[in-house]
Nucleic acid binder design. Structure first.
Lengths: 341, 341
DNA sequence: CTGTTAGCGCGTTCAA
DNA sequence: TTGAACGCGCTAACAG
């Protein structure tokens, strides 16, 4: 491995000069710089990041923690983070948390041992106190998809309530007045989305009856078994004699499973029942009928979050404290029928 | 940040002793070890991996290079690699290559600057010579989903030909004799899968006519536009007056798009045309009709590849040189009709 | 069994 | 504008 000393020897200058050339900082004579650069190129010298991190105490690393990378939503977070990181020549480290707060803490500690102070954390279950402690210790910690009021300037999140409202607004515009909601009491998102839907219909004087909402699973580990849950949810709605023309699903994955469950009991989408999703994943336009949904700009958000983190640790000037709230948007496809009133 | 010296001072021992305790190596008195460990715990000491890597020249890092992490197939590679890496307390670094060999090399060089010598590379387009050069320099480089004969012991790959044969075998068993193939000339995989299908039918005395194969796209950037390509492919097959009862798609994504394209021109799957995929992604059991496909055990493979890489750099004893060929398997769902002969 | 010494490769003083 | 000296935190070799 060729070191800074080797280059210095060959170029007949001191290591400090090579260092200055490499970093493009400090005063170096034009000819001298050219000479050194030539040797660097010829020898294929690349600085040792470990030595660099050791002395400068910064590692040019971005760490991301998400529940499970094989899910496209979280893979998108990784994708976006890498895109933004690479623009600043940062490398990306990643860990799966499996939605376990202990894993999250563990991952973050590991990152820090590597000198990584830019961390993008997707945590739905970590306690606010723990996260506040972390934020104090880690200048570049940014939360994605979670809003913590005390840490507002570090949260990159989506307006789920508006998303819910958009859903409701669109369904209303298509003539739907009786809505069912199928969700899962996993985190706050679904609660906010439901709130948005309710708010909208409330404002139209149409309250949504309790029996039209399914959000509790009879079994424990639903996450790995959305399909089964959706079969249950559909059955449950009909068992309760709920009156609805459209189902609002927590997200696209659930929406697709609900469409399948409906199909299996002979209901057609959208002819008999309309369905709406949330996220706008790939599957939303690959399923049939193509899913009308709310777009969650997750790649953009994760790029933004990464840039924000980098800014917080890199920029000398103070950053304007502000919120980082993204808005979802409606994507109309084929899963909602227009009802003539 | 608490260093090894701090611990040493408080515990009233030398830094070396602390180092020995931390690493669990070398001889340390029982009482002494306990005392040091106590201080470590109390002070929350965590070794600085950069300093460690600098002196030991090893970094406990696994690097993975895949085309794009937001695609579930590649996200699965990352997921599996992280699972295996964590078992050995290794961290994972990742980069998107966007299928560009230059990006791949660049990513690998960056990894190496971090002292990372365990690299899992998913490269379809890199030249064999370049990869051989890399392999020589990097002891822990493992190729996933690519077989290079000269580097056989570092390749973790799938038997695509058998996958093709399984596809053909199953279709044949369901009474299909006229097969169409829709694929894309991106890499070797599709060629191998097609070969498997052809081999099988050849052995039954049923050659597949050329007009039943669509594998070239009229436009350039198909990767980001599979749907359009599938619409084209279906049209093309009918335009050619190809005679077929089943379509074998390159992978699940394409299969789903083909089903949609068929649906859009009024053909029902599987009543009018049967369709088979490859990969067994999530979407294969979420689409309707649920897709009969060939399972690609990618998470297991990526875990295996990571363990293999770790073995190659960690284990003192010589590793038995052998191949790492995985077999796909048939997953029967609903997209293939049984034809009575 | 434990401590001392000497670097790993680099960035950062401070002098020249 | 350039160079020499020092130390980041740690491990490894050696001495005791």
């Amino acid at each position: 491995m060729v070191t800074i000393k080797d280059v210095a020897r060959v170029a007949d200058v001191s290591p400090s000069t090579v260092s200055r050339v490499v970093r493009g900082e400090g005063k170096v004579g034009k000819k001298c710089r050219a000479k050194v650069q030539k040797v660097i190129d010829e020898m294929g010298y690349r600085p040792n990041t470990n030595a660099r991190a050791l002395v400068s105490r910064r590692s040019e690393l971005v760490g991301i923690v998400t529940p499970a990378l094989h899910k496209p939503f979280f893979g998108s977070i990784a994708f976006g983070a890498e895109t933004a990181a690479r623009q600043k020549s940062f490398q990306v480290m990643m860990r799966n948390s499996h939605n376990d707060p202990e894993h999250e803490i563990d991952a973050i500690n590991s990152f820090r041992e590597h000198g990584c102070e830019n961390i993008i954390l997707h945590s739905k279950s970590g306690s606010v106190d723990d996260l506040k402690d972390l934020a104090e210790k880690i200048p570049g910690l940014v939360f994605i998809n979670r809003f913590i009021p005390e840490l507002a300037s570090r949260c990159v999140w989506l307006d789920n309530v508006s998303g819910g409202r958009m859903t409701a607004d669109y369904l209303y515009s298509q003539g739907h007045r009786d809505i069912a909601l199928v969700s899962l009491n996993l985190n706050n998102d679904q609660e906010e989305r439901i709130r948005g839907v309710r708010q909208f219909f409330q404002s139209k004087g149409i309250p949504i009856p309790e029996e039209n909402i399914v959000e509790h699973s009879p079994v424990k580990d639903v996450v790995s078994n959305i399909e089964e849950y959706c079969v249950y949810a559909v059955k449950e709605l009909y068992k309760r004699n709920a009156n609805f023309t459209a189902i609002v699903a927590y997200n696209d994955e659930m929406a697709v499973c609900l469409m399948n469950a409906l199909f299996d009991i002979g209901k057609r989408v959208p002819e008999d029942v309309s369905v709406m999703g949330f996220d706008d994943l790939d599957i939303a336009h690959k399923c049939r009928p193509a899913l009308t949904t709310i777009r969650y700009p997750i790649i953009e958000m994760s790029e933004y979050a990464t840039k924000l983190s980098l800014q917080m640790t890199l920029e000398k000037e103070d950053i304007v404290q502000r919120t980082h709230l993204f808005m979802p948007s409606l994507v109309v496809r084929k899963s909602v029928k227009k009802i003539d009133l």
